[in-house]
């Protein structure tokens, strides 16, 4: 049984007060996520990531299609016992302290008195704000609220966790903490579904990713599968190289960048064997600094795929679609 399953999930928002028109935020999303997977849900701003997560938490209802979590339809109160959810830009109650908030949620989960307090304390320590437990939430910075959001999502040792942009608002240390937290969840066998527009997060964490653009799924697979699409090549850095020599290389190199006087970074296409060129250039008096393969990053794939999808969308549906994509 998959941990999360969606079937042709579609959502239209109606926009415009006087003459409401439906605007499609998500179209025919079909996904299946196995238990224990760390699933990265990627896409530019406005792609429909938050919409998907809200559909999975039944904060909004689908226009058509359906979704299941742990084999039960979304919104099932019994299944919610085993879920955690961090909304995008989480917000809580201004007048409560961090500890009071978590105690409240722990009690909603059915923990009693001292047990609820103990659980709340543990989680505040886990997300690194144990020192601020008695501070009112109105005094919390965005990053601290994000940490509280994580704490409340993990309060019940969930089996499936949904995180909407978990790294947003965090400093580099905070991002590292979140990465470690997700890895620890993976060790525990927890399924993690997280959305992000920051690709490096996904690259180091995810077993599988999906790329969404303008409400449509445009790619899905393991990170290495997606990277196999990318363009490879070589980067050859040489010093003591004359400008004239570089100019003579012409189309044999994809690009030449002068780093310093006589110091060049040359990009070679994947099919050009670098050793021949290296020998030639050394013979011309240049010296090798480094030679590295160019690996495509998820970002390259992303830009290529999203860019391609946008062009096709514009081609098929005309430019009027573009107003939806706030970037």
């Amino acid at each position: 049984m998959p941990a999360i399953r969606t079937e042709a999930l579609t959502k239209d928002y109606s926009t415009g007060f006087w003459r409401p028109r439906p605007s499609r935020a998500l179209e025919n999303l079909t996904l299946e996520i196995a238990p224990g997977e760390i699933f990265g849900f990627l896409g530019p701003n406005g792609a429909g990531k938050t919409t998907t997560l809200k559909l999975l938490m039944q904060l909004i209802f689908p226009t058509s299609g359906r979704a299941e979590i742990l084999g039960r339809p979304v919104g099932d109160v019994g299944v919610k016992r085993r879920l955690g959810y961090l909304p995008e830009n989480p917000y809580f109650y201004d007048n409560l302290t961090a500890e009071e908030l978590l105690v409240y949620y722990a009690r909603v989960f059915g923990h009693h008195g001292s047990e609820a307090a103990r659980r709340a304390g543990e989680l505040l320590d886990l997300v690194g704000i144990g020192g601020e437990r008695a501070l009112q939430l109105r005094k919390f910075s965005k990053g601290m609220l994000q940490r509280i959001g994580l704490a409340q999502a993990l309060l019940n040792d969930p089996d499936v966790v949904f995180l909407d942009e978990p790294m947003s608002g965090l400093d580099p240390l905070g991002r590292r903490d979140v990465r470690e937290l997700i890895l620890r969840l993976r060790e525990r066998g927890c399924t993690v579904f997280f959305s992000s527009h920051i690709l490096s997060d996904a690259e180091s964490l995810c077993s599988r990713v999906a790329i969404l653009s303008a409400g449509r799924l445009i790619a899905t697979g393991t990170v290495s599968e997606l990277l196999a699409f990318g363009v490879g090549g070589w980067e050859l850095v040489m010093t003591n190289l004359a400008a004239a020599t570089v100019a003579r290389l012409g189309l044999r190199i994809a690009r030449a960048t002068e780093i310093a006087e006589g110091h060049y970074a040359l990009e070679l296409p994947i099919d050009a064997a670098p050793d021949g060129l290296l020998r030639e250039l050394t013979a011309a008096g240049a010296a090798l600094v480094s030679l590295n393969p160019i690996r495509p990053t998820l970002e390259d794939v992303f830009i290529k795929k999203v860019g391609g999808a946008r062009e096709r969308a514009t081609f098929h549906h005309g430019a009027h679609r573009d107003h939806r994509e706030k970037t």
């Binding site: 809200k54 938490m57 039944q58 904060l59 109160v77 019994g78 919610k80 016992r81 879920l83 955690g84 959810y85 909304p87 830009n89 989480p90 917000y91 809580f92 109650y93 949620y105 909603v108 989960f109 059915g110 959001g149 409340q152 999502a153």
Partner: peptide, 13 residues
């Protein structure tokens, strides 16, 4: 202010 998102993600109808 969307604190309802957190509340409704708990086992609460």
């Amino acid at each position: 202010r969307r604190s309802i998102y957190n509340l409704l993600s708990k086992p609460v109808s």
